[in-house]
Write a protein that binds this DNA or RNA. Structure first.
Length: 358
DNA sequence: TCTGGGGTCCTAGGACCC
DNA sequence: TCTGGGGTCCTAGGACCC
């Protein structure tokens, strides 16, 4: 049986800010959009635990956060800095594991099966990793330990903040049973509502469910839900992951129908996408434009070039065409986004797989 | 409360080829 | 004349996660 850990950095962006501004440690700290006196449109990205005491949390409108605690410290998101800190952490995790899979800027799975003899040594090993990260970077984290990805994740959530939690395979179902269904990884707002209306309030209810019933309403996802509720999950980590799409989107300060203004925004966004594309050294085949209207309705339109391209002109031209195909609506636009996908690796960047002809 | 931005995966219908 | 099935690509939308 494999020993899988999920390492998740605690309140990561805010913790990074506390690191370079130690004086903010004793204050409620909110990283996210500039509140602009409470009229801004952004949201809270992350906040420290002092800010949470006032009811502030991730994804909350920044205007609400501002109302809850006007004299909190509000800082903008400095992604490049967090990425630098993240890289340090990820290097450490790689050195402590036999397999490593980064899930996001502040989270990674590690397989440590080859590093320790069994689960008896796992908590001690996690403590070592946690201490090492703290010493080297000054950042706190939480670690979940189990025999598959799902349970490592669920254990980690239970261990937060600054904790280590191990859930053995034989304890998994019991551990999950009392939790509300919404806590299960993969169950969001919509699925939670549907499950509750079917009478499944807790994960335990779901584990005792009629699978035929779940599959008939949710399809393949229903079978997956059932497996998850029983604490079963994948134990294979994917190490060589390739990016699938690159996009940027921007919300206007106020909704607009001004074509000139929107086209200008598309141009500026396309340039950012292009820069990222060059960094990743990939070519794209498909361009997608996303529009969010004043009423929050969202639409995507995409077109395939029929061939690979790495040119800015192709992004801009197609994005503008796609946008113009919406123009008869003429409703106020809140947000506009541009995304490219359908990648092929560019010359000189052949993957090992392609190289050996696999 | 009034809602950002960066992603992933899944579904489903239609086109087209064999 | 009416009838297959598999495979892949394209497009649009939805749900979810961090």
């Amino acid at each position: 049986m494999k020993i899988i850990m999920l390492v998740d950095m605690d309140y990561f962006f805010a913790a990074c800010e506390e690191l370079r501004h130690p004086k903010y440690k004793e204050k409620p700290l909110v990283v996210g959009a500039d509140p602009k006196g409470g009229v801004a449109r952004g949201v809270v990205s992350t906040c420290n635990y002092l800010a949470r005491k006032y009811g502030i949390h991730s994804a909350m409108p920044i205007s609400t956060a501002y109302r809850l605690k006007k004299d909190a410290v509000f800082l903008p998101v400095d992604y490049p800095y967090y990425e630098k800190m993240s890289n340090q952490v990820m290097q450490i995790l790689k050195s402590f594991s036999t397999k490593f899979e980064q899930v996001s800027i502040d989270e990674a799975f590690i397989d440590v099966s080859g590093k320790i003899d069994g689960f008896e040594q796992a908590v001690e090993y996690a403590r070592k990793i946690k201490g090492f990260i703290k010493n080297e970077t000054g950042l706190p984290c939480s670690i979940g330990i189990s025999s598959n990805r799902l349970m490592a994740k669920m254990a980690c959530e239970a261990g937060k903040p600054d904790g280590i939690k191990m859930v053995l395979e034989e304890e998994a179902e019991k551990f999950l049973a009392p939790m509300p269904v919404g806590k299960l990884y993969g169950v969001g707002k919509k699925t939670k509502e549907r499950l509750e209306s079917m009478g499944y309030k807790t994960i335990g209810d779901l584990a005792r469910a009629n699978t035929v019933n779940l599959v008939s309403t949710f399809g393949v996802f229903g079978a997956e839900l059932y497996r998850s509720a029983k604490g079963q999950g994948e134990d294979v980590l994917v190490e060589n992951y390739e990016i699938k799409s690159i996009g940027r989107e921007r919300t206007f300060e106020s909704d607009t129908t001004d074509r000139e203004k929107i086209i200008a925004q598309i141009n500026s966004i396309a340039k950012e996408v292009y820069e990222e594309l060059k960094k990743e050294r990939v070519s794209f085949k498909t361009v997608t434009v996303k529009i969010r209207y004043y009423d929050f309705s969202e639409h995507l339109k995409s077109r395939s070039l029929g061939h690979y391209s790495d040119e800015l002109g192709d992004i801009v031209d197609n994005a503008v065409k796609l946008f113009d195909s919406y123009s008869e609506k003429n409703e106020p636009v809140r947000k506009i986004g541009v995304r490219v996908s359908g990648f092929s690796k560019q010359g000189g960047q052949k993957s090992m797989k392609e190289f050996i002809g696999a």
